[in-house]
Amino acid sequence: MEYQIHPHPHPVRGPYALHMSKRRLVALVLAVVLFTGAIGVRFVLLPSLLKLPADLDASIELTGTASLVDQAAIRSFDVRNLIREDVPVTIVNNVKVVSTQDGDAVIANRSTVTGPDNAVLSDTTRNWSINRRTFAAAPVPPGSGAQPHEGLVAGFPLDVQARDYPFWDFATQTVAQARYVGTEKIGDRTAYRFNIKASGPVKDPDILKMMPPGVPLTLTASSDATYWVDASTANVLDVNQRQDVEAVLALGSFTVPLGSVFSLEAHFAPETASDLRAAAAAQERGVFLLSTVIPVGLGLLAMAFGLITAWPALRRLRRPSARPMPRVSFQPPPGS
C-alpha cells in the first residue's frame, strides 16, 4: 500500500489575503504620490520661488552725505551759497513689480533723497524690464514706460557667481563692468565683492532737469560703487557708493569749469546691514529645506511604501525552489 501527499492546486485566499492586497495597493499609491511630490518640490516649486516675486514691493534705506546745488540760492542769485556741502541725507530705494509676462517683469525703481528736516532733495522713478530669474534686460513691453538698457539694473542674478557682470549706468546710459574683486566675510556670511566704475557725459533726463533751465551747462558724471553680494542668496549685504557730477559753463567760445555741482556718498546703516544678513540666512535655510530636506524626506518615505508593496515578491525570491514531494510507501510486515 502506498500513500502519496499532493499539495492543493490553488492557494486558499481568505479575507486576510484580500486585506493584505488592499494594503499593498494603498502603499503603492502613496509611494507614487510621495515620489511625485519630491520631484515637484525640487524641480517645480523651488525654481518657481527662485525668481523675482510677482508681488515684490521692497524698500531699503541708505545713509550718507551729499553736496548739491541749492535751488533757493539760484532763485535769489546767491552765488556764494550756490553749492551746499556735506548735507546729511537719507536715501530710500524702493523696487516694486509693476507687471509680469511669462518670465519677465517690469519694475519701478524709485529713489528718494531727503535732507535735514525731511526736505526732499530728489525723487526719481525709473522703470525697467528685466528677466525675473537672471535680472538681465528683457524686451520692453509697449506702454510700460520702461527705459531701454543693457546689463543689470536691479541687483545680481539669483545664481550669482564669482565673475564680472555687465551693469547699466543710468547717469551716462552706458554699460559698465561690475568687476569681481574677491570673496570676503561679512559678519557670518560669505560675500562676493564687486566694484563698478563709470564716467561720461550725463544723458539721464532726471539728472539734467535738476540743473537750472536756460543755463548752457555741460555735465559729466562719474560713479564708483562697491557691492558685497551674498554668495548663497545673491542678496546685497552692504554697499558703498559715490557719485559726482561736474559742470562746465559755456560762455560764447569760452568754457568755465564750475567743478562738482552734485556729489553723493552713501552706504547701509549698521542695523540695515545686520537685518540683511539675517534675512539672507533665513532665505538660505528655506532654500535648503526645499532643495534637499523635503525632497529627500519624501523620497525616503516613497521608498519605504514601495518596499511594503514589493515585500511579498521579494520574500518569494528569497525562498528555495520547490522540490517534488517524496513518495511514502507502506509495506505490511511478513505474514500479516
Rank of each mutant, 00 (worst) to 15 (best):
T190D: 15
A136Y: 04
V106H: 01
P320Q: 11
D117L: 06
V287Q: 08
Q173N: 09
I91K: 14
L300E: 12
L219N: 08
T112Q: 13
A31L: 13
R75K: 06
N195I: 13
N240E: 10
T124I: 00
P148T: 07
D204W: 00
A322W: 05
L68F: 15
N195C: 01
F43G: 05
E2Q: 03
L301T: 03
L25E: 10
I60L: 12
D275N: 15
L290E: 00
V175K: 00
V256A: 03
V236C: 07
A250S: 01
K96L: 09
A72S: 10
D102P: 00
N127V: 02
G306T: 14
R84P: 11
M303Q: 15
R42Q: 07
P141G: 04
T292L: 07
G40L: 09
L208A: 07
L56S: 14
N235F: 03
T63C: 01
R133E: 13
F156Y: 10
F194L: 09
V261N: 00
Q331I: 01
G299L: 14
P213S: 08
V98R: 05
A302V: 09
V113S: 07
I107Y: 01
F35K: 04
S199N: 09
F268A: 03
A191W: 10
I107L: 02
A58C: 03
D123C: 00
D206H: 12
E265S: 13
H267K: 15
M210K: 15
D57I: 04
A304C: 05
V41A: 03
V215R: 11
A310E: 09
W128C: 02
A322G: 04
R132W: 06
I91Q: 14
L46D: 01
F35V: 06
G64V: 08
I74S: 02
V229D: 14
P116V: 13
P7L: 12
R285E: 11
S260Y: 05
V79D: 14
G64N: 06
A191V: 05
S199T: 09
A66Y: 13
P270S: 11
L25N: 14
L208N: 09
A154H: 00
R75I: 09
R179M: 06
F288P: 02
F167K: 03
T272F: 03
V328G: 00
G259R: 02
G14S: 15
R327M: 04
G252F: 01
N127R: 12
G115Q: 14
I83G: 01
G252L: 01
W168D: 12
S329N: 05
E2T: 04
G103R: 15
T292V: 04
Q177E: 02
V95N: 08
P9K: 08
A250F: 00
L258S: 00
A280G: 06
R75D: 10
R75A: 12
F35I: 06
L158S: 03
S199W: 02
I39N: 02
